[in-house]
């Protein structure tokens, strides 16, 4: 099952709303499980068992380990553990969107929705560039590892700045080169055409989309009532 990008965006905003609004951990677990279920429905490889496990570990730390360990440690760990835990619905949503949505669908849907062409291209390129960026980062890291560029520099500040330069500059250079080459390829294929392109990958919203939207609105409404009226 693949949902529409619009459904995903609504789902994202609403789950973020729930995440910041809701303070009942049982409700939160329910949301996480519902999102996991949605991930499982969305095809192979979308659901990441390790991510769910991490959530479980965070819960365990907060509710079982914090009460029994010295407070000094709790003071150190409380903020990151709790913040990441309560942000988890958003993380689950982002994983769901990133793994199931193709650039072509985003472009087609946004074009149909009359989002400005510039914004559409920029968003499409940003999504497409994420894996390239990761790859570039890995290459630079490996090259640095072989090179041992900071050997022999003892001053820690000089060392740090050299290190940053060695990572940042190749990254920037390759970002600029990549965007130039991408542009050349894109304009020889008519990206600057003023007319409305064919949106082959556009699909109208289906029943599943409306169900998911209604459900997520329902859950959000429940969170609001639960927070402000019941308690």
């Amino acid at each position: 099952m693949r949902l529409d990008i619009r459904t995903y965006l609504i789902l994202l905003v609403l789950s973020a709303t729930c995440a910041s609004l809701n303070t009942h951990v049982l409700v939160e677990i329910g949301i996480i499980l519902a999102l996991s279920f949605l991930q499982l429905l969305s095809g192979k490889g979308v659901f990441m068992p390790r991510l769910l496990l991490l959530y479980g570990v965070l819960l365990l730390i907060q509710y079982q380990i914090f009460p029994v360990i010295p407070e000094v440690v709790v003071l150190l760990l409380s903020l990151p553990v709790v913040n990441i835990r309560s942000f988890f619905p958003v993380i689950m949503c982002v994983v769901l969107i990133y793994k199931t949505t193709q650039v072509s669908q985003v472009v087609a849907t946004f074009t149909k929705m009359k989002v400005s062409k510039g914004a559409t291209i920029a968003i499409a390129i940003a999504i497409r560039y994420i894996p390239s960026l990761a790859e570039e980062w890995r290459h630079i890291k490996e090259a640095m590892w072989v090179r041992r560029a900071t050997v022999g520099i003892h001053n820690p500040i000089v060392r740090l700045s050299k290190c940053i330069e060695c990572y940042l500059v190749p990254l920037l250079i390759s970002a600029i080169k990549t965007s130039d080459e991408l542009s050349a390829a894109a304009i020889t294929r008519g990206i600057d055409s003023p007319g409305m392109p064919t949106c082959r990958k556009y699909r109208p919203m289906g029943a599943a989309d409306y169900i998911v939207i209604l459900l997520s609105i329902g859950v959000t409404a429940f969170c609001v009532v639960n927070e402000y009226i019941l308690t």
Binding site: A122, S179, D180, A184
Partner: peptide, 8 residues
């Protein structure tokens, strides 16, 4: 087009 790509 190329400016949007760079900005993206």
């Amino acid at each position: 087009g190329k400016d949007y790509i760079t900005c993206g």
